[in-house]
């Protein structure tokens, strides 16, 4: 898979869908493609976060270790998903562990690269705000539903 295909994947991610292809190409070019073997961890809960990963191929589990110490799989990610973006947006430790469940090909977007892109191309920042606002709205709704129910 070359740069062109990577750009195609990036365009399908909501966060990036309104961004010009040439900017996405720059981002893809400046990012490293990282392949994880089946069972390898992309990052562990509680670590310092330095990058987000966009899944190009393969699947991974998102696991959260509960207070009891038992890891619970809370979600699965596959192609076109992005993981680890929370840690690079606000400086909090990783909120979950992500483990590849097949050979996993990702695009690693480092914190510096991401902030550079936001700085240089403000429309990315706006997109990020929009996506985050959506999520907040969803979470709030879920919270309300949970309390009400």
């Amino acid at each position: 898979m070359g740069l062109e295909q990577e750009v195609e994947v990036l365009r399908r991610i909501p966060l990036f869908q309104n961004i010009e292809p040439s900017k996405l190409k720059l981002m893809a070019f400046a990012s490293e493609r990282v392949t994880f073997a089946d069972g390898a961890a992309l990052f562990d809960q509680g670590e310092e976060g330095d990058a987000a990963y966009i899944v190009l191929e393969g699947t991974a589990d998102v696991r959260v270790t509960a207070d009891s110490g038992e890891p619970i799989t809370v979600a699965q990610v596959a192609s076109n998903d992005i993981v680890g973006e929370i840690a690079i947006l606000c400086n909090v430790p990783r909120t979950a562990t992500v483990v590849a469940t097949s050979e996993l090909v990702t695009l690693k977007i480092t914190k510096e690269l991401f902030f550079r892109m936001v700085q240089d191309f403000p429309q990315i920042g706006i997109e990020v705000m929009r996506v985050l606002a959506h999520r907040l709205e969803t979470t709030t709704r879920q919270l309300r539903a949970a309390r009400g129910g």
């Binding site: 740069l3 040439s22 900017k23 190409k25 720059l26 070019f29 400046a30 550079r116 240089d120």
Partner: peptide
């Protein structure tokens, strides 16, 4: 051609030039 396309909008002296 690729470089001209993706680096066109960056101002000179941008760290990307040096890195990538």
């Amino acid at each position: 051609r690729t470089m001209v396309e993706i680096f066109a909008d960056l101002e000179p002296g941008h760290p990307f030039f040096e890195q990538f």
